[in-house]
Design a protein around this nucleic acid. Structure first.
Lengths: 208, 208
DNA sequence: TCCTTACGCTACGACCCGTAGCGTAACTGC
DNA sequence: GCAGTTACGCTACGGGTCGTAGCGTAAGGA
């Protein structure tokens, strides 16, 4: 988690895994009740039933703690095969939107990203704990679409990687912006319109 | 700004407009030097050469102050007519990306959006001070594209409005996500790929 | 049994918050 | 001019959080 030594056989009393779980759970609960800005280390410690010093033995501060506490939420995202690229896109959009409806995710995601603009190590932690876990859905969806014949297999591997990154930023960015900046709901209608735009383009979607 | 009474002829000593400007300037400078999380009201007051109480007479707190301090940056965005829809899209993408390169914008934008998830009045302030000032660019770009014959005029006004909102979220969301979450540069190459995707769609861009 | 590490607890200085109180400054209406 | 009104700078304050240090105790490994 925050250890530098993942598998070293260390002597002494081991860290309490129960405390780990209690702290992360307490952090999510505190995010729901208080939100990012009013969440304090003391409050989390009290909720988790541990001493404040125990938190600081595991995490450097609020930023790192919250990233780890929220990261597990993003593991819930899945990409069931809905039979077509359009259906897959719409499905993942609605799933991601449902995740962003959860108050602990809403308040934490933008906050830690904001912090990460001035903290490289935090940015890397967010990337490995959150961002990369979403990106796999794009890669999986593309594979399926290629197998169905909906998309070509790409020759240039680096161009293909750039393209996957682009699509990832477009999908995730649009949903996040709609939900948190515009602050309007991502419902089936919006997801449908977005999917049309993504697949057909601006002119194509207007014609269709 | 934060006054409820815009034009009433009020008696007494007027608020110092020099102090207003100094405070907002000091806020941006503090954002550059310290970032959102380490910016304090005391620091801003010191930099601006005013008393801390003067800040609180104008703004309820850090959130509102920073929104106003950063909002003016978004007024710099323009949409010169570059002759085609593709060029206009690419132009606005690069402009917005350049804005997000500025450290005061980077660190402030996500932070205030995160705060706004638990503060309705702050969300409205962000909307009127920042978001709506970007949205006009989408409306203007569509008008031009329609005049050129690149896009149809839409019959249903509400559908047209929904569509503009969708496009706005896609463009702004993608650029923000690329810049602040993926933390990779929005250069001409990326802007070009994004524009192709937006105009032609997933399959169309791959073919072109 | 020793050794090592984790834990809970307490206490601490440092800092920031947001407000109150005061005397002074600036502008308006009579 | 002279009141009346509002803004300003300054000081001070209680309340809260931060992150750390020190201590005695608990829980494993050799």
């Amino acid at each position: 988690m925050s250890d530098t030594d993942p598998k070293a056989t260390r002597t002494g009393r081991p860290r309490s895994t129960a405390a780990d779980a209690a702290i992360l759970e307490a952090t999510r609960a505190s995010l729901v009740d208080l939100g990012w800005s009013k969440l304090t280390m003391s409050d989390v410690a009290t909720r988790a039933g541990v001493a404040k010093t125990t938190l600081y033995r595991r995490w450097a501060g609020k930023n790192e703690l919250v990233v780890d506490a929220v990261a597990v939420l993003f593991d819930e995202l899945e990409l069931p095969d809905l039979g077509s690229l359009a259906a897959d896109v719409q499905g993942v959009v609605l799933q991601f939107a449902a995740l962003l409806e959860r108050p602990e995710a809403r308040t934490a995601l933008m906050a830690v990203v904001a912090e990460s603009t001035r903290d490289d190590s935090l940015r890397h932690r967010i990337r490995s704990a959150i961002v990369d876990r979403q990106k796999r859905l794009v890669l999986l969806g593309r594979e399926r679409a290629q197998a169905r014949g909906e998309l070509r297999y790409e020759d240039d591997a680096s161009a293909a990687a750039r393209n996957a990154d682009l699509i990832f930023d477009v999908i995730a960015g649009a949903v996040v912006h709609r939900t948190l900046v515009s602050a309007e709901p991502v419902d089936a209608e919006w997801a449908s319109g977005f999917t049309s735009l993504l697949l057909l383009g601006l002119a194509g979607a207007q014609a269709g």
